[in-house]
Design a binder for these strands. Structure first.
Lengths: 215, 215
DNA sequence: CCTCCTTTACTCGCCTACGAATATACGTCC
DNA sequence: GGACGTATATTCGTAGGCGAGTAAAGGAGG
Protein backbone atom coordinates (compact mmCIF):
# COMPACT_ATOMS: atom_id res chain seq x y z
CA UNK A 1 0.00 0.00 0.00
CA UNK A 2 3.01 2.24 0.03
CA UNK A 3 2.07 3.91 3.26
CA UNK A 4 3.68 7.13 4.29
CA UNK A 5 6.67 6.37 6.50
CA UNK A 6 7.60 8.33 9.60
CA UNK A 7 10.97 8.81 7.94
CA UNK A 8 10.55 8.90 4.21
CA UNK A 9 13.98 9.79 2.95
CA UNK A 10 15.65 6.83 1.22
CA UNK A 11 18.82 7.75 3.05
CA UNK A 12 17.01 6.44 6.11
CA UNK A 13 16.85 3.01 4.53
CA UNK A 14 20.57 3.08 3.90
CA UNK A 15 21.15 4.11 7.51
CA UNK A 16 19.02 1.29 8.88
CA UNK A 17 20.64 -1.20 6.54
CA UNK A 18 24.05 -0.22 7.85
CA UNK A 19 23.50 0.32 11.55
CA UNK A 20 21.76 -3.03 11.81
CA UNK A 21 25.20 -4.63 11.73
CA UNK A 22 26.54 -2.95 14.82
CA UNK A 23 26.22 0.38 16.66
CA UNK A 24 28.08 3.23 15.03
CA UNK A 25 28.12 6.97 14.51
CA UNK A 26 26.51 8.69 11.50
CA UNK A 27 29.65 9.39 9.61
CA UNK A 28 30.68 5.77 9.84
CA UNK A 29 27.34 4.66 8.41
CA UNK A 30 27.83 6.93 5.44
CA UNK A 31 31.39 5.73 4.95
CA UNK A 32 30.30 2.13 4.98
CA UNK A 33 27.55 2.76 2.49
CA UNK A 34 30.06 4.43 0.26
CA UNK A 35 32.67 1.73 0.73
CA UNK A 36 30.15 -0.88 -0.32
CA UNK A 37 29.34 0.97 -3.46
CA UNK A 38 25.72 1.33 -2.45
CA UNK A 39 25.97 5.10 -2.49
CA UNK A 40 25.18 4.79 -6.12
CA UNK A 41 21.67 3.65 -5.24
CA UNK A 42 21.07 6.08 -2.42
CA UNK A 43 23.06 9.20 -2.98
CA UNK A 44 24.37 10.56 0.31
CA UNK A 45 23.63 14.16 1.10
CA UNK A 46 25.77 15.11 4.08
CA UNK A 47 23.30 17.70 5.23
CA UNK A 48 20.50 15.18 5.30
CA UNK A 49 22.39 12.43 7.06
CA UNK A 50 22.26 13.93 10.52
CA UNK A 51 18.67 15.10 10.15
CA UNK A 52 17.60 11.64 9.05
CA UNK A 53 19.45 9.93 11.88
CA UNK A 54 17.94 12.32 14.41
CA UNK A 55 14.49 11.63 12.98
CA UNK A 56 15.00 7.90 13.12
CA UNK A 57 15.93 8.35 16.76
CA UNK A 58 12.93 10.57 17.42
CA UNK A 59 10.63 7.85 16.13
CA UNK A 60 12.31 5.19 18.21
CA UNK A 61 14.04 3.31 15.39
CA UNK A 62 17.49 4.20 16.71
CA UNK A 63 18.75 4.94 20.21
CA UNK A 64 21.88 6.58 21.51
CA UNK A 65 24.41 4.00 22.61
CA UNK A 66 26.85 6.45 24.09
CA UNK A 67 29.14 9.12 22.76
CA UNK A 68 32.74 8.87 21.89
CA UNK A 69 35.05 11.72 22.74
CA UNK A 70 38.52 10.25 22.29
CA UNK A 71 40.59 11.71 19.53
CA UNK A 72 38.51 13.93 17.28
CA UNK A 73 36.89 16.89 18.96
CA UNK A 74 33.43 16.82 17.32
CA UNK A 75 32.11 14.40 19.95
CA UNK A 76 30.67 11.56 17.93
CA UNK A 77 27.34 10.09 18.96
CA UNK A 78 27.02 6.34 18.58
CA UNK A 79 23.60 5.02 17.59
CA UNK A 80 22.17 1.55 17.96
CA UNK A 81 19.17 0.14 16.09
CA UNK A 82 16.14 -0.79 18.22
CA UNK A 83 13.68 -3.63 17.77
CA UNK A 84 11.22 -1.15 16.37
CA UNK A 85 13.95 -0.10 13.97
CA UNK A 86 14.57 -3.63 12.77
CA UNK A 87 10.83 -4.03 12.36
CA UNK A 88 10.50 -0.82 10.40
CA UNK A 89 13.46 -1.68 8.23
CA UNK A 90 12.10 -5.08 7.16
CA UNK A 91 8.65 -3.65 6.73
CA UNK A 92 9.92 -0.86 4.57
CA UNK A 93 11.83 -3.22 2.30
CA UNK A 94 8.80 -5.48 2.00
CA UNK A 95 6.71 -2.53 1.03
CA UNK A 96 9.15 -1.28 -1.56
CA UNK A 97 9.52 -4.69 -3.13
CA UNK A 98 5.82 -5.44 -3.31
CA UNK A 99 4.47 -2.09 -4.42
CA UNK A 100 5.34 -0.73 -7.85
CA UNK A 101 5.69 3.00 -7.47
CA UNK A 102 5.26 5.44 -10.32
CA UNK A 103 8.41 7.44 -10.08
CA UNK A 104 8.41 10.66 -12.01
CA UNK A 105 11.14 10.97 -14.55
CA UNK A 106 12.64 14.16 -15.87
CA UNK A 107 13.00 12.72 -19.34
CA UNK A 108 9.36 11.79 -19.39
CA UNK A 109 8.41 15.31 -18.39
CA UNK A 110 10.59 16.67 -21.17
CA UNK A 111 9.04 14.35 -23.74
CA UNK A 112 5.63 15.58 -22.75
CA UNK A 113 6.57 19.07 -23.94
CA UNK A 114 9.07 18.35 -26.69
CA UNK A 115 6.72 19.99 -29.16
CA UNK A 116 8.09 23.44 -28.39
CA UNK A 117 11.34 22.47 -30.07
CA UNK A 118 11.58 21.77 -33.78
CA UNK A 119 11.69 18.13 -34.85
CA UNK A 120 15.18 18.64 -36.20
CA UNK A 121 16.50 19.99 -32.97
CA UNK A 122 14.84 17.20 -31.03
CA UNK A 123 16.44 14.69 -33.36
CA UNK A 124 19.86 16.11 -32.79
CA UNK A 125 19.40 16.30 -29.02
CA UNK A 126 18.24 12.72 -28.86
CA UNK A 127 21.19 11.65 -30.93
CA UNK A 128 23.39 13.19 -28.27
CA UNK A 129 21.43 11.49 -25.55
CA UNK A 130 21.77 8.11 -27.19
CA UNK A 131 25.51 8.56 -27.58
CA UNK A 132 25.93 9.49 -23.92
CA UNK A 133 23.70 6.67 -22.80
CA UNK A 134 25.63 4.15 -24.88
CA UNK A 135 28.86 5.17 -23.29
CA UNK A 136 27.48 5.20 -19.75
CA UNK A 137 25.89 1.82 -20.22
CA UNK A 138 29.04 0.29 -21.60
CA UNK A 139 30.92 1.45 -18.51
CA UNK A 140 28.16 0.30 -16.23
CA UNK A 141 28.05 -3.12 -17.83
CA UNK A 142 31.81 -3.48 -17.60
CA UNK A 143 31.75 -2.50 -13.93
CA UNK A 144 28.98 -4.95 -13.20
CA UNK A 145 30.78 -7.79 -14.92
CA UNK A 146 33.90 -6.94 -12.98
CA UNK A 147 32.03 -7.08 -9.70
CA UNK A 148 30.22 -10.27 -10.60
CA UNK A 149 33.53 -12.05 -10.73
CA UNK A 150 34.18 -11.41 -7.07
CA UNK A 151 30.84 -10.69 -5.42
CA UNK A 152 27.78 -12.98 -5.42
CA UNK A 153 24.83 -11.85 -7.50
CA UNK A 154 22.84 -11.68 -4.29
CA UNK A 155 24.51 -8.33 -3.65
CA UNK A 156 24.32 -7.06 -7.19
CA UNK A 157 20.76 -7.53 -8.37
CA UNK A 158 20.03 -3.83 -8.06
CA UNK A 159 22.81 -3.11 -10.51
CA UNK A 160 21.42 -5.70 -12.90
CA UNK A 161 18.01 -4.12 -12.60
CA UNK A 162 19.31 -0.66 -13.24
CA UNK A 163 21.18 -1.82 -16.29
CA UNK A 164 18.16 -3.62 -17.71
CA UNK A 165 15.91 -0.62 -17.31
CA UNK A 166 18.41 1.81 -18.77
CA UNK A 167 18.98 -0.51 -21.70
CA UNK A 168 15.26 -0.45 -22.35
CA UNK A 169 15.34 3.31 -22.22
CA UNK A 170 18.15 3.36 -24.73
CA UNK A 171 16.38 0.93 -27.04
CA UNK A 172 13.19 2.95 -26.95
CA UNK A 173 15.00 6.21 -27.62
CA UNK A 174 16.90 4.64 -30.49
CA UNK A 175 13.72 3.46 -32.11
CA UNK A 176 12.09 6.85 -31.72
CA UNK A 177 15.17 8.43 -33.19
CA UNK A 178 14.87 6.08 -36.12
CA UNK A 179 11.35 7.23 -36.84
CA UNK A 180 12.39 10.84 -36.61
CA UNK A 181 15.43 10.66 -38.82
CA UNK A 182 13.73 8.50 -41.43
CA UNK A 183 10.74 10.80 -41.42
CA UNK A 184 8.28 8.05 -40.62
CA UNK A 185 7.08 9.62 -37.41
CA UNK A 186 3.48 10.69 -38.10
CA UNK A 187 2.73 14.40 -38.16
CA UNK A 188 6.32 15.46 -38.77
CA UNK A 189 5.32 17.84 -41.53
CA UNK A 190 2.61 19.48 -39.49
CA UNK A 191 5.04 19.86 -36.63
CA UNK A 192 7.67 21.44 -38.87
CA UNK A 193 5.15 23.67 -40.56
CA UNK A 194 3.88 24.88 -37.25
CA UNK A 195 7.34 26.03 -36.20
CA UNK A 196 8.18 27.54 -39.58
CA UNK A 197 5.05 29.63 -39.95
CA UNK A 198 3.88 29.90 -36.38
CA UNK A 199 0.44 28.77 -37.42
CA UNK A 200 -1.21 25.76 -35.89
CA UNK A 201 -1.87 23.13 -38.58
CA UNK A 202 -5.44 22.06 -39.23
CA UNK A 203 -5.04 18.64 -37.72
CA UNK A 204 -3.90 20.06 -34.41
CA UNK A 205 -6.17 23.05 -34.33
CA UNK A 206 -9.23 21.53 -32.75
CA UNK A 207 -7.08 19.90 -30.11
CA UNK A 208 -6.05 23.24 -28.71
CA UNK A 209 -9.62 24.28 -28.15
CA UNK A 210 -10.29 21.79 -25.46
CA UNK A 211 -7.48 20.44 -23.37
CA UNK A 212 -5.02 18.40 -25.36
CA UNK A 213 -5.07 14.93 -23.98
CA UNK A 214 -8.34 15.44 -22.16
CA UNK A 215 -10.67 12.49 -22.30
CA UNK B 1 25.51 19.27 -18.60
CA UNK B 2 22.42 19.16 -16.49
CA UNK B 3 23.18 22.48 -14.85
CA UNK B 4 21.44 23.45 -11.70
CA UNK B 5 18.40 25.55 -12.56
CA UNK B 6 17.26 28.62 -10.69
CA UNK B 7 13.95 26.86 -10.32
CA UNK B 8 14.52 23.14 -10.19
CA UNK B 9 11.10 21.77 -9.37
CA UNK B 10 9.59 19.93 -12.35
CA UNK B 11 6.34 21.64 -11.55
CA UNK B 12 8.06 24.76 -12.84
CA UNK B 13 8.40 23.14 -16.25
CA UNK B 14 4.71 22.36 -16.28
CA UNK B 15 3.95 25.95 -15.33
CA UNK B 16 6.13 27.38 -18.09
CA UNK B 17 4.68 24.93 -20.61
CA UNK B 18 1.20 26.13 -19.76
CA UNK B 19 1.57 29.84 -19.25
CA UNK B 20 3.42 30.13 -22.55
CA UNK B 21 0.05 29.89 -24.26
CA UNK B 22 -1.47 32.96 -22.66
CA UNK B 23 -1.32 34.83 -19.36
CA UNK B 24 -3.21 33.18 -16.55
CA UNK B 25 -3.35 32.71 -12.80
CA UNK B 26 -1.69 29.79 -10.99
CA UNK B 27 -4.79 27.78 -10.35
CA UNK B 28 -5.70 27.93 -14.01
CA UNK B 29 -2.29 26.61 -14.99
CA UNK B 30 -2.74 23.65 -12.71
CA UNK B 31 -6.24 23.02 -14.00
CA UNK B 32 -5.04 23.05 -17.59
CA UNK B 33 -2.22 20.65 -16.82
CA UNK B 34 -4.71 18.36 -15.20
CA UNK B 35 -7.25 18.69 -17.99
CA UNK B 36 -4.60 17.70 -20.50
CA UNK B 37 -3.74 14.62 -18.59
CA UNK B 38 -0.17 15.81 -18.12
CA UNK B 39 -0.55 15.80 -14.36
CA UNK B 40 0.40 12.20 -14.62
CA UNK B 41 3.91 13.21 -15.65
CA UNK B 42 4.34 16.06 -13.23
CA UNK B 43 2.26 15.47 -10.18
CA UNK B 44 0.78 18.71 -8.91
CA UNK B 45 1.35 19.58 -5.28
CA UNK B 46 -0.90 22.47 -4.44
CA UNK B 47 1.39 23.75 -1.78
CA UNK B 48 4.30 23.90 -4.20
CA UNK B 49 2.44 25.54 -7.05
CA UNK B 50 2.41 29.03 -5.61
CA UNK B 51 5.95 28.80 -4.29
CA UNK B 52 7.18 27.71 -7.70
CA UNK B 53 5.28 30.44 -9.52
CA UNK B 54 6.63 33.05 -7.12
CA UNK B 55 10.14 31.76 -7.66
CA UNK B 56 9.74 31.84 -11.41
CA UNK B 57 8.67 35.44 -11.04
CA UNK B 58 11.55 36.25 -8.72
CA UNK B 59 14.00 35.03 -11.34
CA UNK B 60 12.33 36.99 -14.10
CA UNK B 61 10.78 34.09 -15.98
CA UNK B 62 7.27 35.27 -15.24
CA UNK B 63 5.85 38.71 -14.61
CA UNK B 64 2.62 39.92 -13.09
CA UNK B 65 0.16 40.88 -15.77
CA UNK B 66 -2.40 42.33 -13.42
CA UNK B 67 -4.72 40.97 -10.80
CA UNK B 68 -8.28 39.98 -11.16
CA UNK B 69 -10.68 40.91 -8.41
CA UNK B 70 -14.08 40.38 -9.98
CA UNK B 71 -16.09 37.59 -8.50
CA UNK B 72 -13.97 35.44 -6.26
CA UNK B 73 -12.51 37.11 -3.25
CA UNK B 74 -9.07 35.50 -3.17
CA UNK B 75 -7.74 38.14 -5.60
CA UNK B 76 -6.16 36.10 -8.35
CA UNK B 77 -2.84 37.22 -9.73
CA UNK B 78 -2.38 36.80 -13.45
CA UNK B 79 1.10 35.93 -14.64
CA UNK B 80 2.63 36.31 -18.08
CA UNK B 81 5.73 34.56 -19.36
CA UNK B 82 8.70 36.78 -20.19
CA UNK B 83 11.28 36.41 -22.94
CA UNK B 84 13.72 35.12 -20.36
CA UNK B 85 11.05 32.64 -19.36
CA UNK B 86 10.58 31.39 -22.92
CA UNK B 87 14.33 31.11 -23.18
CA UNK B 88 14.65 29.20 -19.93
CA UNK B 89 11.80 26.93 -20.89
CA UNK B 90 13.30 25.86 -24.22
CA UNK B 91 16.72 25.59 -22.66
CA UNK B 92 15.44 23.41 -19.89
CA UNK B 93 13.69 21.05 -22.27
CA UNK B 94 16.80 20.83 -24.43
CA UNK B 95 18.84 19.99 -21.40
CA UNK B 96 16.46 17.31 -20.19
CA UNK B 97 16.26 15.70 -23.61
CA UNK B 98 19.98 15.65 -24.21
CA UNK B 99 21.26 14.62 -20.80
CA UNK B 100 20.47 11.19 -19.41
CA UNK B 101 19.97 11.60 -15.69
CA UNK B 102 20.42 8.80 -13.19
CA UNK B 103 17.19 8.97 -11.29
CA UNK B 104 17.16 7.09 -8.04
CA UNK B 105 14.48 4.47 -7.80
CA UNK B 106 12.93 3.15 -4.63
CA UNK B 107 12.74 -0.35 -6.05
CA UNK B 108 16.42 -0.28 -6.82
CA UNK B 109 17.20 0.79 -3.28
CA UNK B 110 15.05 -2.05 -1.96
CA UNK B 111 16.79 -4.57 -4.20
CA UNK B 112 20.12 -3.47 -2.84
CA UNK B 113 19.08 -4.64 0.63
CA UNK B 114 16.69 -7.47 -0.17
CA UNK B 115 19.06 -9.85 1.60
CA UNK B 116 17.55 -9.09 5.00
CA UNK B 117 14.39 -10.89 3.93
CA UNK B 118 14.31 -14.60 3.26
CA UNK B 119 14.38 -15.72 -0.37
CA UNK B 120 10.92 -17.21 0.03
CA UNK B 121 9.44 -14.00 1.29
CA UNK B 122 11.14 -12.04 -1.46
CA UNK B 123 9.73 -14.45 -4.00
CA UNK B 124 6.23 -14.00 -2.72
CA UNK B 125 6.55 -10.22 -2.56
CA UNK B 126 7.85 -10.06 -6.11
CA UNK B 127 5.01 -12.25 -7.26
CA UNK B 128 2.67 -9.65 -5.83
CA UNK B 129 4.58 -6.88 -7.50
CA UNK B 130 4.42 -8.59 -10.87
CA UNK B 131 0.70 -9.11 -10.54
CA UNK B 132 0.11 -5.45 -9.69
CA UNK B 133 2.40 -4.30 -12.44
CA UNK B 134 0.65 -6.47 -15.01
CA UNK B 135 -2.67 -4.99 -14.12
CA UNK B 136 -1.43 -1.43 -14.11
CA UNK B 137 0.31 -1.88 -17.42
CA UNK B 138 -2.75 -3.42 -19.04
CA UNK B 139 -4.76 -0.36 -17.99
CA UNK B 140 -2.05 1.99 -19.09
CA UNK B 141 -1.76 0.34 -22.48
CA UNK B 142 -5.50 0.43 -22.98
CA UNK B 143 -5.61 4.11 -22.05
CA UNK B 144 -2.78 4.90 -24.41
CA UNK B 145 -4.42 3.08 -27.30
CA UNK B 146 -7.63 4.92 -26.58
CA UNK B 147 -5.88 8.26 -26.72
CA UNK B 148 -3.92 7.37 -29.82
CA UNK B 149 -7.16 7.09 -31.72
CA UNK B 150 -7.97 10.74 -31.16
CA UNK B 151 -4.72 12.51 -30.35
CA UNK B 152 -1.58 12.61 -32.51
CA UNK B 153 1.40 10.64 -31.24
CA UNK B 154 3.26 13.92 -31.06
CA UNK B 155 1.46 14.55 -27.77
CA UNK B 156 1.72 11.04 -26.45
CA UNK B 157 5.34 9.98 -26.76
CA UNK B 158 5.92 10.38 -23.06
CA UNK B 159 3.21 7.84 -22.39
CA UNK B 160 4.78 5.46 -24.89
CA UNK B 161 8.12 5.92 -23.21
CA UNK B 162 6.71 5.28 -19.78
CA UNK B 163 4.99 2.15 -20.97
CA UNK B 164 8.12 0.82 -22.62
CA UNK B 165 10.24 1.35 -19.53
CA UNK B 166 7.72 -0.15 -17.17
CA UNK B 167 7.34 -3.15 -19.46
CA UNK B 168 11.07 -3.66 -19.26
CA UNK B 169 10.86 -3.46 -15.50
CA UNK B 170 8.14 -6.08 -15.52
CA UNK B 171 10.08 -8.37 -17.83
CA UNK B 172 13.20 -8.11 -15.70
CA UNK B 173 11.28 -8.80 -12.50
CA UNK B 174 9.54 -11.76 -14.10
CA UNK B 175 12.82 -13.28 -15.13
CA UNK B 176 14.31 -12.78 -11.68
CA UNK B 177 11.23 -14.34 -10.19
CA UNK B 178 11.72 -17.30 -12.49
CA UNK B 179 15.22 -17.86 -11.20
CA UNK B 180 14.04 -17.62 -7.62
CA UNK B 181 11.10 -19.95 -7.90
CA UNK B 182 12.97 -22.51 -9.93
CA UNK B 183 15.85 -22.35 -7.54
CA UNK B 184 18.39 -21.50 -10.20
CA UNK B 185 19.42 -18.22 -8.64
CA UNK B 186 22.99 -18.76 -7.42
CA UNK B 187 23.59 -18.74 -3.69
CA UNK B 188 19.99 -19.48 -2.77
CA UNK B 189 20.98 -22.17 -0.31
CA UNK B 190 23.56 -20.03 1.42
CA UNK B 191 21.02 -17.24 1.66
CA UNK B 192 18.41 -19.55 3.15
CA UNK B 193 20.91 -21.12 5.51
CA UNK B 194 22.01 -17.75 6.73
CA UNK B 195 18.48 -16.80 7.72
CA UNK B 196 17.70 -20.21 9.25
CA UNK B 197 20.76 -20.41 11.47
CA UNK B 198 21.77 -16.78 11.74
CA UNK B 199 25.30 -17.68 10.75
CA UNK B 200 26.98 -16.13 7.78
CA UNK B 201 27.85 -18.81 5.20
CA UNK B 202 31.46 -19.35 4.27
CA UNK B 203 31.16 -17.92 0.82
CA UNK B 204 29.84 -14.62 2.13
CA UNK B 205 31.99 -14.41 5.20
CA UNK B 206 35.05 -12.74 3.78
CA UNK B 207 32.87 -10.20 2.02
CA UNK B 208 31.68 -8.78 5.30
CA UNK B 209 35.19 -8.07 6.46
CA UNK B 210 35.90 -5.43 3.92
CA UNK B 211 33.05 -3.46 2.41
CA UNK B 212 30.73 -5.53 0.30
CA UNK B 213 30.85 -4.24 -3.20
CA UNK B 214 34.02 -2.26 -2.61
CA UNK B 215 36.46 -2.35 -5.46
C1' DC C 1 -34.73 30.73 -0.67
C1' DC C 2 -32.13 28.31 2.59
C1' DT C 3 -28.88 24.63 3.28
C1' DC C 4 -25.26 21.89 1.95
C1' DC C 5 -21.86 20.12 -1.09
C1' DT C 6 -18.44 20.85 -4.55
C1' DT C 7 -15.32 23.64 -7.09
C1' DT C 8 -12.39 27.39 -7.28
C1' DA C 9 -8.46 29.69 -5.44
C1' DC C 10 -5.12 30.67 -2.41
C1' DT C 11 -2.35 31.16 2.27
C1' DC C 12 0.05 29.43 6.19
C1' DG C 13 3.34 27.29 8.65
C1' DC C 14 5.91 23.31 9.75
C1' DC C 15 9.25 20.21 8.54
C1' DT C 16 12.70 18.50 5.61
C1' DA C 17 16.56 18.68 2.65
C1' DC C 18 21.01 19.90 1.90
C1' DG C 19 24.96 23.14 0.67
C1' DA C 20 28.38 25.26 2.98
C1' DA C 21 30.98 26.28 6.82
C1' DT C 22 33.72 24.56 10.56
C1' DA C 23 37.34 22.29 13.03
C1' DT C 24 40.48 18.78 14.24
C1' DA C 25 43.63 14.87 13.10
C1' DC C 26 46.65 12.70 10.13
C1' DG C 27 49.87 11.97 6.92
C1' DT C 28 53.72 13.43 3.66
C1' DC C 29 56.94 15.95 1.02
C1' DC C 30 60.71 18.93 0.98
C1' DG D 1 59.54 19.97 11.53
C1' DG D 2 56.40 23.09 9.57
C1' DA D 3 53.41 23.81 5.84
C1' DC D 4 49.90 21.96 3.31
C1' DG D 5 46.58 18.82 1.53
C1' DT D 6 43.13 15.34 2.63
C1' DA D 7 40.09 12.53 5.52
C1' DT D 8 37.17 12.68 9.50
C1' DA D 9 32.93 14.41 11.72
C1' DT D 10 29.51 17.47 12.63
C1' DT D 11 26.59 21.91 12.97
C1' DC D 12 24.01 25.67 10.94
C1' DG D 13 21.11 28.45 8.12
C1' DT D 14 17.86 28.75 5.09
C1' DA D 15 15.30 27.88 0.87
C1' DG D 16 11.96 25.00 -0.69
C1' DG D 17 8.28 21.41 -0.49
C1' DC D 18 3.83 20.38 0.61
C1' DG D 19 -0.23 19.06 3.66
C1' DA D 20 -3.80 21.17 5.71
C1' DG D 21 -6.52 24.97 6.45
C1' DT D 22 -9.53 28.82 4.74
C1' DA D 23 -13.07 30.99 2.31
C1' DA D 24 -15.99 32.64 -1.29
C1' DA D 25 -18.96 31.19 -5.31
C1' DG D 26 -21.73 28.20 -7.87
C1' DG D 27 -25.14 24.82 -8.15
C1' DA D 28 -28.44 21.19 -6.65
C1' DG D 29 -32.20 19.69 -3.69
C1' DG D 30 -35.97 20.12 -0.93
Amino acid sequence: MAKRRKVNNMLGLAVLATVIERPMHPYEMASLVRARGKDDDMRIKWGSLYTVVRNLEKHGFLEVAGSDKEGGHPERTIYRITDAGRQEYADWVRDLLATPEREQSAFKAALSVWGILTPDEVTSLLRGRVALLEKELADQRAALNGHLSEIPRLFLVEAEYDLAVREAELAWTRSLLGELSEGTFPGLDAWRHWHATGEVPQELHDLFGRGIGAD
